[in-house]
């Protein structure tokens, strides 16, 4: 475990349900929201509590298993996760293939309680278990011209109803600039709430990049490829105006079809109030410097 970034939230923040119901009321009263938008950043996350395991595992986007939010939890049991391995290739000195078991036994996991902001303007707070992606990337020596990494999700047409229907150009692919990939907030997650990663959440291993829209946090990965140019990414290829390569959470840049200024935190019921979306999803202090000199309204 690299410990480059210390999680100020501990297991004690995984609040029992009875306690967080009271806190929700406090938040809903507006006091909480006000304090949050002033303090921003990590302070905000300390006033939040994770969503329930049920919410996290039954409200998902995983188009390989259908486009409905409840489709992945119904269909993802078919995902074949054994055996599983990840190939690390592209612009590296020696490509390697690691089995999931090798990976799981090589890296010690820690809990990371992150905000998760979907591009569709809803959000959750999720207690991931994982380790920093940088630790895995350190297993290979990239060539000097490597600037990006591309990730690829498994394709199992027989087991994936969305792949059969051709909802997207599968395999699903995502990518990061190398410095984003090596950022201590970027993790490979293997579990939620201390449980092995549920299939619908991207078993057995997935990326989590908490300051970007959720679709960048690619699930069930089988390949990591180092490249010198910006790699193909699935949503950008489908609609570059709507889904940029960076896709940093940004309340000031709207999705062409809806506003990104506010979001709805899942779990507040039928009368749930919207809350302000935070720049970089509340991780501005940690990641803003990655984008120094960039016009984030143009390079979306």
């Amino acid at each position: 475990m690299a410990r480059r970034w210390t999680n100020r939230l501990t297991h004690a923040d995984v609040t029992p349900k009875s306690a967080f119901l009271n806190r929700r009321q406090l938040l809903a009263s507006g006091m909480g929201l006000g304090a949050m938008s002033i303090a921003g950043g990590l302070q905000a996350s300390e006033t939040l509590e994770p969503n329930t395991f049920e919410q996290i595992t039954t409200y998902n986007n995983f188009y390989e298993f259908g486009t409905g939010k409840d489709d992945p939890s119904k269909n993802a049991h078919k995902l074949q996760t054994e055996p599983w391995s990840i190939e690390i290739d592209g612009l590296v000195e020696t490509p390697v293939t690691m089995t999931f078991d090798e990976i799981a036994s090589s890296f010690e996991t820690e809990e990371r309680i992150y905000r998760f902001r979907c591009v569709e303007a809803w959000s959750m707070v999720i207690p991931w278990n994982g380790f920093e992606l940088a630790d895995l990337l350190d297993r290979v020596t990239p060539l000097p011209e490597a600037k990006y990494v591309q990730f690829e999700t498994a394709v199992q047409p027989k087991n994936m109803i969305g792949v059969k229907r051709g909802v997207l150009d599968f395999p699903y692919r995502e990518g990061l600039r190398l410095d984003e990939a090596r950022h201590p907030l970027t993790i490979l997650a293997t579990g939620i709430y201390g449980e092995p990663m549920p299939n619908q959440n991207g078993a057995p291993i997935r990326i989590v990049v908490p300051w970007k829209y959720g679709f960048k946090s690619i699930k069930s990965i089988v390949r990591i490829t180092f490249t010198d140019e910006e790699p193909f990414t699935t949503w950008k290829d489908l609609n570059p105006r709507e889904y940029g390569f960076y896709s940093n959470v940004n309340p000031n840049v709207d999705h062409p079809r809806w506003s990104q200024a506010t979001e709805r935190l899942i779990g507040g019921g039928l009368f749930n109030a919207r809350q302000d979306t935070l720049m970089f999803n509340g991780y501005e202090e940690e990641v803003a410097s990655l984008y120094d000199g960039m016009d984030l309204t143009k390079q979306i």
């Binding site: 919410q55 039954t58 409200y59 809803w122 709805r264 899942i266 019921g269 039928l270 749930n272």
Partner: peptide
């Protein structure tokens, strides 16, 4: 159904 909590995201679902 929206009130009852059976839907994870009742507003959008309703």
């Amino acid at each position: 159904l929206g009130l009852s909590g059976v839907w994870i995201e009742p507003i959008n679902t309703l």
